[in-house]
Design a protein around this nucleic acid. Structure first.
Lengths: 221, 221
DNA sequence: ACTCGAATAAAACATCTGTTTTATACATAT
DNA sequence: ATATGTATAAAACAGATGTTTTATTCGAGT
């Protein structure tokens, strides 16, 4: 047995194609052509088209955790506010600047748009751990327990911006969104500042029941 | 010629199915079954599967503009800050509470995830007008000209949250996200407060070159 | 009564898709 | 050298899919 190398070529080709176009839209024949392998190779090495896909998903999950750990480590010892800024910067640099990892979050976005059976794996092992880290940061910034609903609301507010700005279609809507490596640092600063501002605003609200009407002075026009 | 009514049934069935599962994933046979029509009906009435899809897209665009106009009208005379709050509330109520219009933004989300040739139409006639309205509001709140990049950055920050929280998959990630009609008002308040806080934070930044380092005092842990 | 055109229906077509089957090359162990 | 098991290759299969073709129905205009 000399090889295992077509196994690897299949994985890499499939990762790129699945991320870009989704599970259903990519054909087995296409993957095999890109990997310079026979049509039967997918079924031989991964039993199924779905088997290959979940293998790709497992790769993606590992990379997601890698990014989370990177950000966590880079922020060690810093204040919560600075940790959040660092997370945003690491996240954007790793996925937008580094094209090697770009496919991963393309895959996640696609799973969010229409989930396959593999989505549960991604949530459990990729997204949940990251949310817990961010949830801890935000809870500290808000000064409330981590299970307070507004914590997850804020985390979602931050994360939605990050996922949004990586969507290739967004550049067609907001023409100013070009993710050139030089623009990424600036984008990271904007998103950090916007999100920290949002969190600060939520902190001011009274913590108790939301039945209290939200009253706020209007500024002149 | 008695009818035109299968034409209508096809449109309605197709809208629901395309929104839920996307252009490629829905079969012509499926649409015709749902519309109680023959397999050839799509090609007869719309020439193409794509012809039917673009007809659906045109319907969606009209509804989008309707929501925009509703929000704009409801905010007439109010301050910019209040207008933004009203926009968020109208938007969420119309698409999350009112299930009649829910399919539309499912369709948009899907087009963002992987665009079809019809995406350009949606941008031009559905999204652009809305962004210009929001851009005007935000520019006023930021106190800077509407073409300042941070305006679109803030608009994207707001819009990303709105699109994000309507994604059905989000409820699986953030278990607290249940869009029961009663929770929608609260969600709208949170998103408004978060976004206005973000905008306020960006306003404080010096307006000129971003080369100036972002310095900020750290709070005690 | 007849014709014409529009709407529906049924069947057929060509193509594509995931998968399976069968055959072949080849390295290693006995 | 022969047998064995693994990896690749080529061909075939069954099912689905968008579209086209051919018939049929039905109402209106003459």
């Amino acid at each position: 047995m000399k090889d295992q190398e077509t196994h690897q070529r299949l994985l890499e080709a499939a990762a790129r194609l699945f991320a870009r176009r989704g599970f259903k839209d990519v054909t087995v024949r296409e993957i095999c052509r890109a990997a310079r392998a026979n049509v039967a190779a997918v079924n031989y090495h991964f039993h199924d088209k779905l088997g290959l896909y979940t293998a790709v998903v497992r790769m993606a999950i590992d990379e997601i955790r890698g990014t989370s750990d990177s950000a966590r480590q880079a922020g060690e010892g810093a204040s919560a506010e600075e940790k959040l800024r660092i997370y945003v910067r690491v996240f954007l640099q790793r996925i937008a600047a580094n094209s090697r990892d770009a496919w991963i979050h393309q895959l996640i976005s696609r799973e969010m748009a229409d989930p396959t059976p593999a989505f549960d794996l991604i949530i459990k092992h990729g997204i949940r751990p990251r949310l817990e880290y961010l949830g801890g940061l935000v809870a500290e910034l808000l000064g409330c327990p981590p299970n307070n609903p507004r914590v997850m609301q804020s985390v979602a507010g931050l994360q939605s911006q990050l996922l949004f700005c990586m969507n290739p279609a967004v550049a067609r809507v907001y023409p100013t969104f070009n993710l050139t490596p030089s623009a990424i640092d600036e984008l990271a600063r904007h998103i950090s500042a916007f999100s920290l501002g949002g969190i600060r605003a939520l902190r001011r609200h009274r913590a108790a029941v939301p039945s209290a009407p939200v009253k706020r002075r209007r500024r002149a026009s």
